[in-house]
Amino acid sequence: MNNAFVTFQKYMGTGLITVWFLVAVIFLLVWEKRRPRRILFVYVPVIVLLCFFNPLFAGLFGRMGDEATYFRVFWLLPVTAVISYSAVLSVDRLKGKRAVFFAVLCLGLIAVSGKPVYSNSLYSRAENIYHVPDSVVEICDAIEVPGREVMAAFPPEMILYVRQYSPVVCMPYGREVLMGSYDEFYTLMREKEIDLERLVPLSREKGCHYVVFGKDSLILGEPADYGWSLFYSCEGYDVWRDNAVPLIVPEGH
């Protein structure tokens, strides 16, 4: 039950849109006389809300999936349709300039109560038609080998994108390390000072043909001493080839 309230709070965000939704449901409960609309815009949302806060229901849902996705029950509430429908009905009850004023007020209230989706700081201008950073595209194109997969270790900021762009580029660690899973290799890769003496054995153990470092990383040790050679360089990144890990191109490619 407590978890349901926490989920509800997270889902509400600033809370005002949810308040408008509840106001709209009450408005329809009072004014909407057509039964089909009362059923879908009043009764069903009330049932969904009662279920949501019911511990038995929460337990049943928990067995179907993880608790982190319990908020999806709220998707059954037709928030957008109910608020919009109620607003149109309200405007319709007014005449002339008052109707226009109220219509503009509704639009303004929604804008003030919500938050623009595009204001999220995780948005950025797309660099290409793949919507992944140019550096990922360049490096993947450079290290891909016809007819086989290659293994490459990337710095943290590239992990999310590599396999979206190129499924033939494999990685020794994936998104799970960004979500807190411990990986010794990754821990070394994200350090500012990269100690090759500690990194190279792990890289070879994972069979990495390539290792990608940011140009601002400080490499401790001479790469050539470990059988590494600079394979490719692009804006911000260097790609090192570990010559001790064989990369045989299949015949016919």
Binding site: T14, I17, W75, A87, V88, P116, V117
Partner: peptide, 18 residues
């Protein structure tokens, strides 16, 4: 129009359908 504005301003939480 209201639906579109609600969706455009649906960023008040990461979990909304909008």
């Amino acid at each position: 129009l209201l639906v579109e504005v609600l969706i455009l301003f649906g960023g008040y939480s990461l979990y909304t359908p909008e």
